[in-house]
Design a protein around this nucleic acid. Sequence first.
DNA 1: CTGTATCCAGTAGGATACTG
DNA 2: CAGTATCCTACTGGATACAG
Lengths: 109, 109
Amino acid sequence: MIHGTQEVLGLLAGRWSVDVLYLLASGTRRYSQIFYEVGEISKKTLTQTLRTLETKGLVTRRVFPEVPPRVEYSLTTRGWSLSSLLMAMYEWSAEDGSTRRTGHLRVAA
Amino acid sequence: MIHGTQEVLGLLAGRWSVDVLYLLASGTRRYSQIFYEVGEISKKTLTQTLRTLETKGLVTRRVFPEVPPRVEYSLTTRGWSLSSLLMAMYEWSAEDGSTRRTGHLRVAA
DNA sequence: CTGTATCCAGTAGGATACTG
DNA sequence: CAGTATCCTACTGGATACAG
């Protein structure tokens, strides 16, 4: 179990993986779009992050042989699958937040 | 959503956090027990990991004023709550493994 | 037994400049 | 536009020795 869990965390390793994954979960993006939308990242790190995510089978890289070059990134099926886990983490943190404030779960009225 | 997700990943940051969490999920342990059961960790890093988990509210540290000293670590409620998320990650990785081999989910006969 | 103190190496990631 | 190349800093964690 430890191993499987670490495997998931390994997929999400790196400062920017989650940001990129969330961004691509809202649609295919070109390199420069990601670069600007994701925020403070350097090009070196962005390229590195994208390549790593590609190697892990989470992201697809599609090159269009044009001038100037165009490269589009999108989630693979596996990437989409993993994004549901990202949502689960977000939901846990939200629930954790209200639980820690109120001492119990807030139930809809 | 990114923020909440990163918060969860922050709780699990560090090479040994998940190992310690899983270990404590199987019961309270003394310092030296964790040290030996977790494997290759150094004492410095173990102490650091435990203190960090304590600060994050995932682990409780209980000191018994004896000679020689005894210190017991266990999960807090929040730690238990988070461990269900660890299980979700494990289950995703297991499902991911069979899906990637077979191309579809394996269903019980 | 349960740590601290000190030193050190490996790695992630930023800054900047350059390329096809 | 979509990267590479180079240099550099900060942080994580291991090794070892020492302490209460």
